[in-house]
Write a protein that binds this DNA or RNA. Structure first.
Lengths: 226, 226
DNA sequence: AATATTCAAAATCTCGAAATTTTAGTGAAA
DNA sequence: TTTCACTAAAATTTCGAGATTTTGAATATT
């Protein structure tokens, strides 16, 4: 028996967005408003409002009179997201290395510590799926911390959006949900270089770190095509 | 007597957005849904949908249960918009100079030609306000053309959003609606350098061109404060 | 005079149903 | 067998009203 729990507009938004970013909806699939309305026990307008917001942010594709779909990821769209993340994170890093004070270093250290801990747990236990949400949150926090002293609200907002779209497009069970054993060493190298304020080194590791999922993917595709 | 014309959702969206970007709504003022509903002869939901989209894009500020306002521009938010435009346009320009073929040059030449024509008309006639919409469109087309061969849909989409928010924040009657006599020479210099594929020169002029409104503004503020 | 409180008017948000459009399935014609 | 037209079902979008919350002015209190 299902209890008729009531969800608010923002709760529904967060829930669907999180399901999108961890790959619970298949790319290209349609999100039926009526189904969701019953699921969340709300009106059609509320669901519509949520879907419009998600499509405005690029998490869904809206076609007038034809509803909402999860965008079909292409090799081009993934490359695009990677390049955009690299552009924003490099710029944010450069500015943070210039402007960041002790508070910034402390925030970075804190987020690195959490991320390293979770990655260690995943490596030891092999339980990726059950730690997905924690890892997702921790990885974002770390990358955000790197750029958080850039003193640009706009850069941070744009990065938040692009980072989440990156996850949605690139992360799936094919890619082990974005978790890679090499991440552990890379995150440490990025953290160390950032603390040393070594921009050339830090940005170079950062770039190949973000790029990695892409090259991994195209390798997979070549294998599949062969 | 008023004829009860019917407007579609997307028409209303475009109309309000255009009014925002050319400064027809005062910064900090509230957009009353009921008033707009009567104006556009539609339902409350339709207006709400439009306002939600505009707030998602950063053209309006939404506070739950308290409606929608035109964001109050601050010196920080303007600096932020300028820096973001510079980042995106420099990157787009660099990529376009690398990738752009003859078609790109032709598109750039076409948009430059239109822009130069309109700016000439404005300079001759002094009629800025009546040419606002044309100039607005032409200036965007030119700046878009500069970066249009970057081969990044995401960069172009983000730039479109930031450019419009830049207009909304920086353009008002104080700043002569963004029109400056120096623009004519600057646009020509940017165009010439782009055709010569001279990135260092072109990006440097481009940066000071975008920055100009800001320094002009802070000069105005200093005068006002004195 | 300044601060609180009350209450009605106005505005926002949510709802469920009506209107419109798309989708899918059936059958007729080429 | 394929193509086209028609129709019924399903989905999306728009609507207007009702419920909830905010606002602001008038009154009361310190």
């Amino acid at each position: 028996m299902t209890t008729a729990t009531k969800y608010s507009s923002s709760e529904i938004y967060s829930d669907i967005k999180s399901k999108l970013t961890i790959g619970k909806f298949l790319q290209g699939s349609k999100l039926r408003a009526e189904r969701l309305r019953l699921n969340y026990n709300c009106s059609a307008s509320t669901i519509r409002e949520v879907m419009l917001k998600l499509s405005c942010e690029g998490h869904l594709e809206a076609v007038e009179q034809k509803g909402f779909r999860v965008p079909m990821g292409t090799s081009e769209s993934r490359t695009d997201l990677v390049r955009m993340r690299v552009l924003l994170e490099k710029e944010g890093l450069k500015l943070s290395l210039e402007n960041g004070k002790l508070d910034w270093e402390a925030e970075l250290a804190a987020s690195y510590h959490k991320l390293a801990h979770i990655e260690n747990v995943i490596q030891q236990s092999g339980r990726i799926v059950s730690n997905m949400l924690f890892w997702n949150e921790a990885e974002y926090s770390f990358h955000k911390a790197l750029i958080s002293a850039c003193e640009s609200k706009l850069l941070l907002e744009t990065h938040y959006n692009i980072y989440n779209r990156f996850r949605q497009q690139l992360i799936s069970d094919d890619t082990n949900y974005g978790f890679d054993i090499r991440n552990i060493a890379e995150h440490k190298a990025i953290f160390d270089a950032a603390i040393k304020r070594n921009y050339p080194l830090c940005s170079s590791i950062l770039e190949s770190h973000i790029d990695k999922d892409l090259s991994h993917r195209s390798k997979l595709q070549k294998v599949a095509a062969a």
